[in-house]
Design a protein around this nucleic acid. Structure first.
Lengths: 343, 343
DNA sequence: TTGAAAGCGCTAACAG
DNA sequence: CTGTTAGCGCTTTCAA
């Protein structure tokens, strides 16, 4: 076997450049309050290039207590909303010199918590979290240690204590779901079913609230029987739709709390030879890439996943680098109803 | 402002448990060749729990030269093939105690290279790479330093020097593209177009080779004019299809080198009121989740992205933990032609 | 303008 | 069985 080459250290560079190891660090970091002779600086750079020196992040982190990594804790990268979101996070993180560690929780409280601990191990400088079950108590240890956290949450302001430095981006599930249901009502539907997603999760609750509000605004009665689960997956949407289609009288429109479920619902309709939107209208939520490609093209609601990811990263990084030290931020991003064919 | 709580260290635990700091390390790591009195061990655990001690990864890495992180270097998480692939990687990494750092290169050689350097900074213990432009020379510095790398590559064995410890999983783009084109030929098509993807990238070249082989096997002539680019995006597929549809005589079938492009092609057909598959047959590649949801459902080829991700991770981790030290592995994973409606 | 030196929190060799 | 000790490679005082 060939001997492994030892990675050169600052000391190696220092010797090659005939300076002390500290000087190498100075030129590498452009340290303030220290000025290096141009000639010396040049020698150091030459040595760095000659040896192929690359700083060791572990040592740097240990000393400086910064990892230049952030975590993105999401339910599942395989859910088409999240790749775009994560990409948004990565895009801004990268330009700022941060790497992104992505964790899938599958909406499991245990996994959510263990991902949080990644930060406590000194692994990341901050976190972007899409909480399903996490509560303020889970964040507390991190906050006490000064680790910035940005939430992508649909929680209303009232649920989020304002006195802790937990910035939150809200995608306004409530308002946007309301807008979508209002759209269906405006189309003349008065009996509207809902495929709501996994019980007791923030996205579901917010979207159901929006659904209820829209009905109430128009004096339509709320029938619990018209709300089915669906757990946010295509298979769940399929099952939920099959149930809904047996209800008498059958609703004339269905609002699915995400596109994946709407697509499952579409499959169920196709199977039962129920024509969308003629026999029943169907609206989705998220505007995933496939939404415009299915047949009929899905009426849905675009939450701007990429922009949301970008904004989360900006907010988080501004805390990490201290460029923002002000009050807690609670931003609600806009949405965009996308009428297509299915409703 | 409230004072930040300092994270407890092993020294804090040691004092609380009335042992030396080393003993804390021993019980934490179950160090071999060291036996700790059960009573002592218990005291340490109690102190750990009481203080909420969590090991610092930076210090641990610095000392042990293991980060327990791996990198996944992919073109774009937003391309529907990759979330599944990455999820596969993450799933096995997680059960083995590794976190995964994902980098998007957008197929840019510069970015590909800079992602490689993440490892040289001591950030990761190994890499899984989907190379577009990287060559053996780019890997060399890493290999010299003993960093394991697993490639997800469509390169033929001949392009890959066998004497360097570069394990590679091949998804056999060539064989599978050939299978798909053979399928089209079996359906009676003799004039088959191709939407091939970004020029000079490994996936494109392999799939084009497969296409050519299938034609040759059946004595069909190869017409370069029937091969259009498409850069692997939906928009690219749309444009390519519009070009193909102007060719006289028009091909009766088109093979798109990925589903995204096939879907763009579908849109182009719909716009021009050309009926798939009656007027023209269309086959995709990848079997992304949306493939069965579009209309008509897309005939495509499933490469088992999740399984591929898992296998890449297994191979990489077996090198990292030294459980495999044998010869270079070159595995070709199976594929699965999925006939649906579009062809 | 540069160098010496301390120490971040940990693992692992060595001593006792 | 447990403690002492020496660094891992780096940033950051402090002194010269």
């Amino acid at each position: 076997m060939n001997a492994l080459r030892r990675r050169p250290t600052q000391l190696d560079v220092a010797r090659a450049a005939n300076v002390s190891q500290a000087v190498v660090s100075y030129v590498l970091n452009d340290t303030k309050n220290v000025s290096i002779l141009p000639e010396t600086r040049r020698r150091v750079h030459t040595a760095i290039a000659a040896l192929g020196y690359i700083p060791n992040t572990a040592a740097r982190s240990l000393r400086s207590r910064k990892t230049h990594m952030i975590a993105a804790i999401i339910p599942d990268i395989t859910n088409p909303y999240y790749p775009e979101f994560v990409r948004g996070v990565q895009d801004v993180a990268q330009t700022r010199g941060y790497d992104v560690l992505a964790f899938n929780t599958d909406g499991d409280p245990e996994i959510e918590r263990s991902a949080l601990n990644a930060a406590r191990r000194g692994r990341v400088d901050g976190l972007i979290v899409t909480p399903f079950y996490l509560t303020i108590d889970d964040y507390l240890p991190l906050l006490e240690e000064g680790t910035p956290i940005t939430l992508l949450s649909e929680l209303a302001d009232t649920d989020m204590p304002g006195h802790v430095p937990l910035d939150a981006i809200s995608v306004s599930g409530e308002a946007s779901a309301r807008a979508m249901v209002n759209y269906l009502i405006a189309k003349g539907h008065t009996r509207i079913g809902m495929i709501s997603g996994r019980m007791a999760t923030p996205p579901r609750e917010a979207r159901v609230r929006g659904y209820q509000q829209a009905l109430a605004e128009h004096g339509l009665s709320l029938e619990e029987v018209l709300i089915k689960g669906g757990d946010f997956s295509e298979a769940g949407g399929y099952d939920a739709m099959r149930e809904i289609l047996t209800i008498e009288p059958r609703p004339t429109a269905v609002f699915a709390a995400n596109d994946l479920m709407a697509m499952g619902a579409l499959l169920a309709c196709r199977e039962m030879e129920i024509v969308v939107p003629d026999d029943i209208a169907l609206a989705g939520f998220d505007d995933i890439p496939a939404a415009r490609l299915v047949h009929p093209a899905l009426t849905t609601l675009n939450q701007g996943a990429h922009a949301t990811g970008r904004r989360c990263a900006e907010i988080l990084l501004s805390r990490i680098d201290g460029s923002y030290t002000g009050a807690v931020r609670r931003e609600t991003l806009g949405f965009n109803l996308v009428p297509r064919v299915s409703a």
